[in-house]
Design a protein around this nucleic acid. Sequence first.
DNA 1: CGCTGAGTTGAAATAGCTCAACTCCTGTGG
DNA 2: CCACAGGAGTTGAGCTATTTCAACTCAGCG
Lengths: 217, 217
Amino acid sequence: MRASSSIAPSNFRAPRALLAKTFTRPRPVAMLTPDTEIYAQGEASGVLYRIEFGAVKIYRLMADGRRQVIAFHFAGETFGFECGQVRSFFAECIVATGLTTVDMDDDGRFPADLMELALKEMVRAQEHLLVVGKQSAIEKLSVFLVDLVERQGGLDSVDIPMTRTDIGDYLGMTIETVSRSLSRLKSEGILRLRSNRSIEILSPNRLSRLASKPWIS
Amino acid sequence: MRASSSIAPSNFRAPRALLAKTFTRPRPVAMLTPDTEIYAQGEASGVLYRIEFGAVKIYRLMADGRRQVIAFHFAGETFGFECGQVRSFFAECIVATGLTTVDMDDDGRFPADLMELALKEMVRAQEHLLVVGKQSAIEKLSVFLVDLVERQGGLDSVDIPMTRTDIGDYLGMTIETVSRSLSRLKSEGILRLRSNRSIEILSPNRLSRLASKPWIS
DNA sequence: CGCTGAGTTGAAATAGCTCAACTCCTGTGG
DNA sequence: CCACAGGAGTTGAGCTATTTCAACTCAGCG
């Protein structure tokens, strides 16, 4: 499943005529290898990306070298919203990924269709806040896993494309704590580590009880 | 400066004709007393609010009773963005507050002018993530204070309209830790507590060094 | 076959939480 | 005008979860 070629994002800006605002397909697809940088903090913004397959992480670097992962995005999702002329975040492929682009209007605004997506992204960020603000590492990790399960269609077997470091930077904890929490869930029989990047949920109920949907109804 | 009357938000929905999309003033202003609930989790969404004066907190209640404050808003700011038909958050006045409303379009979308505001709100939420994800309590509080300073025009004297509990729920720490961190900043000569709700920044440099703008350039 | 990076596990250090006592401020009623 | 009550804030002491530092395992790959 490894892409055979890696095309820099700036090279595959599609002709405007091809970019229907109604998201009609097919559109040109760029194949990116793992760890490819899609855009960087400080670059000019303007293009939105839609993931055809694969996974992407959005993060920010701090002055002291720490990193905060803002979001993970998977197939079918759109990312790249910014409020200024300049990117505030980095976007990077986690695995082999196929991307298409969505341009802004001539006047520098987004098609109205995308308002909904931007708002959804806002709410997602705010809900992530609830998770990072939680005190317990087990809780955080459970919420993370339940979210992954749901986004992967509710199957027992969950793919974890990102590294422990990514997860730690996403949840605001060290990789050791991520690892220990996973081990704890394993030892309690809630999940099984099929491999480093794939787990099997043995007791979805107990997992989601740990995650305990923080928001009321 | 206490408002003489408190009008429930549902009572001051202005006639559509008055709500110019270009934000022309004057518009009807509702005066709300402190602790007035502007909207609640679960209510129908649709109206945006603009703060003429005062301060508002946006928060969410968790199933276990914990609270996460998502944002504070001050004069000149607009809040109330949602992605669904229903409010995900509570909005409540912190002090006496004057509000005006901005309706959505007939088709349930926001005027295009507001896209920018929504995106700004998204980025704000994502930056809040950086703060809550930080490990040190002193750092978190410093970032919070620096933000307040900037939003109040960079003066030495900062107004803290919210309680320690609000601050704690915003930064993801207990009120005791908020208090201890403030005392620490005080004992180090970085600030002075004029009163519980007003501080004087003695060394803005050292404060912002502690806050150490996490994002590079 | 050994190198490298990712992940795990252990032990000690520590930051923040919890519980509890206390102070301070403010508003109220005598 | 003063006394008092209640809420908000502060401070202390002990406890615990997470971080830190370090050693180790494991898997993939030249």
